[in-house]
């Protein structure tokens, strides 16, 4: 498959601090590529280097097969960027903001008008065209930020944490919009520290920590990297020491931990454990409110690889 972005050996230093350390990635055409990592892991720095905003010490960056540079306007024309911080003019209304940023790419007025309307429709801002940014909620503001970045219908879109501080409803609307853009033909680079989002929409994922790649692949292949097979969570009163000792004797158990009214039993890969746990509870006449099974998440992958949680 055609590679839209190729980054080879990228290294970015802030003084002596290595923000990005010998990073090599590629993004294939038509994919939603996820850059996952905690705050400060080097996601935004990587994107800013790819976009030629930042100087870097080492590495080669190609986009659409061309070397990216600040003066490569033809290449820039194909790219759309949605930055982590909202970048709109408070003095302009929703329509004028989108029109201004779209106008930096599209000269023809009629085409621009159509593109602006399309972006407004995609981000569901039809009812807020005349609103100024200060009159919008956090979620609507984020949607405006996205509309400003994608109105010119770019072939490659960078979305840097576009859902930070957004309510769940707006977050879903944003993620749906991103999938729509992808289905319309755009290749997408999506950064986030929310593993659920990355899991939900990304085809291929790179996990970063301290500027280095610690894992990469599809979400399925990443989850294969964990020794964990299943986690069974039981909402119940705290079991006594004897019962806990019995739990710990269960085959394939990696960890038994009681916290905040929940007992979490983590099992290694193997046979499904839920029926045997329910059986154990019945046999010991232990009452519980709820019981459910979780498959490994990207957070578990990150935890196993780094010893810390993604949100830390």
């Amino acid at each position: 498959m055609e590679k839209i972005i190729e980054v080879e050996g990228l290294t970015k230093l802030y003084g002596k601090f290595k923000a990005v350390d010998d990073l090599s990635i590629y993004v294939e055409k038509g994919r939603i590529f996820g850059l996952l990592g905690p705050n400060g892991s080097g996601k935004s720095t990587t994107i800013n280097c790819i976009l030629s905003l930042l100087k870097y010490q080492k590495g080669e960056i190609k986009i659409f097969g061309e070397t990216m540079s600040p003066d490569n306007y033809e290449l820039k024309r194909k790219i759309g960027v949605v930055f982590q911080d909202v970048a709109v003019f408070n003095e302009l209304n929703v329509y004028d903001n989108i029109d201004y940023f779209c106008g930096l790419y599209i000269r023809d007025k009629e085409t621009r008008k159509k593109y602006v309307e399309d972006a407004i429709k995609l981000t569901a801002l039809q009812d807020f065209k005349k609103f100024r940014p200060k009159q919008l909620s956090g979620g609507l503001l984020r949607r405006l930020n996205i509309a400003c970045g994608i109105a010119h219908k770019p072939k490659l879109i960078f979305l840097d944490e576009p859902t930070v501080a957004v309510d769940p409803q707006s977050r879903n609307a944003i993620l749906e919009g991103i999938v729509k853009l992808n289905k319309a033909g755009a290749t997408i680079v999506y950064t986030s520290h929310y593993m659920e989002e990355v899991e939900q929409i990304c085809d291929r994922i790179v996990i970063l920590d301290k500027g280095k790649i610690i894992a990469k692949g599809t979400k399925e292949s990443l989850k294969e990297m964990t020794t964990m097979g299943e986690r069974i969570v039981i909402e119940m009163a705290k079991p006594d020491k004897k019962i806990m000792a019995e739990f710990e004797k269960m085959p394939n158990l990696l960890e038994a931990k009681y916290d905040d009214g929940k007992l979490a039993l983590t099992f290694a890969r193997g046979k499904e454990k839920l029926p045997s746990v329910i059986e154990f509870l019945k046999k010991n006449e232990l009452s519980y409110e709820r019981i459910f099974s979780e498959l490994p998440s990207l957070n578990d992958v990150f935890l196993e690889l780094t010893g810390k949680e993604l949100r830390d």
Binding site: L51, L53, K76, R77, Q84, A87, F101, L104, G149
Partner: peptide, 19 residues
């Protein structure tokens, strides 16, 4: 402030545009 990428995100947005 609105033109320089190191001063505002609007500046960053302008800097990544073909302008």
């Amino acid at each position: 402030k609105n033109n320089e990428a190191n001063l505002s995100t609007k500046g960053a947005r302008l800097s990544v545009s073909p302008t």
